[in-house]
């Protein structure tokens, strides 16, 4: 029984981790840059959801729909100001890591200034409610968050694999120069991928706001988690982020139940190191199609 419970809760958590990480991997896979400030965009999504919810009490699913375009706009501003000027420079990779690391501090301190260091949490009508599925108990909010993740991931997969636009994105990620030769506007794909990547992590932030408190440095924890997830699953791969997310979700849930909640992250770190040791290119390595 406990196994089923761990599986179910682990998958719920895993889905959330997957959505948190997928934007990071999308940006890395297509633009080949590491966005060190990934977690901070999650933090912004969480604050946005917190304030929208406190003001309107509307459902988190609806809030996500509002936050997605807002985060895209923020993503575009950051892309134009911080990322674009560094693309095509001699040391693009290092430069963008440095620049987005700097952005981390800027965004954290901005949050601290605007919203203080207080922990804030929203209380939805379903907070701390559970429902039972057979003998398994599941948190309503977590299940709801998971379902939103699932929908987003399926939509994203469909776009990437089945639409002409998705094919262009995959083409750019596989060979940028060949993509130009095929008449693809690479700069446009870069900008849009960055915006969508940021919007996805922003929405991930929104849907976890009923579950986790928000404070200016909350992004550090989730940012680190998403780096572990993508390296574990396979850098740059969409499906790698899903797989890595699920595994980390399961491991942390199992460790939390069987050992202790404090140890949970130690276990995922251990697993992470093990995978790095045995399969440094991540579980999916270069095999994933997307």
């Amino acid at each position: 029984m406990i196994v089923l419970q761990i599986l179910a809760s682990g998958i719920l958590l895993g889905g959330i981790y997957a959505l948190i990480s997928v934007g990071l991997n999308l940006i890395f896979g297509v633009i080949k840059i590491v966005n060190m400030a990934h977690g901070e965009f999650l933090m912004i999504g969480m604050y946005a959801a917190y304030f929208i919810y406190t003001a309107t009490q509307i459902n988190v699913g609806l809030i996500s729909i509002i936050i997605f375009p807002l985060m895209m706009v923020l993503g575009y501003i950051i892309y134009r100001l911080v990322i674009k000027p560094l693309l095509g420079t001699a040391e693009t990779e290092t430069n963008t890591i440095l620049a987005t690391s700097g952005l981390t501090f800027v965004l954290q301190n901005l949050a601290l200034m605007l919203w203080t260091a207080d922990y804030r949490a929203i209380k939805t009508p379903t907070s701390s409610q559970s429902f039972s599925l057979g003998k398994i108990m599941l948190s309503v909010d977590r299940t709801y968050a998971f379902l939103i993740c699932l929908v987003l991931v399926i939509v994203l997969y469909y776009i990437l694999m089945r639409t002409r636009f998705g094919a262009k994105v995959r083409a750019v990620s596989q060979d940028k120069n060949a993509a130009i030769l095929m008449g693809i506007n690479v700069n446009f794909i870069y900008a849009l991928t960055f915006c969508v990547g940021i919007a996805l992590v922003g929405v991930a932030g929104a849907i976890i706001t009923p579950i986790f408190s928000v404070y200016p440095s909350v992004g550090v924890f989730f940012g680190t988690a998403s780096f572990i997830v993508v390296v574990l699953g396979g850098l740059g791969s969409f499906t790698g982020a899903l797989l890595g997310g699920l595994i980390i979700g399961l491991v942390e849930t199992a460790a939390g139940v069987l050992a202790s909640a404090e140890l949970a992250q130690v276990f995922s770190l251990l697993l992470f190191l093990l995978v790095l040791f045995v399969k440094p290119q991540g579980l999916l390595g270069k095999n994933a199609r997307v």
Binding site: R170, A171, Q174, N177, A178, L181
Partner: peptide
């Protein structure tokens, strides 16, 4: 239109 040196196909497509 150029057919580039070394084909440059998209390998995972």
């Amino acid at each position: 239109v150029l057919v580039p040196e070394g084909r440059k196909l998209f390998p995972k497509m």
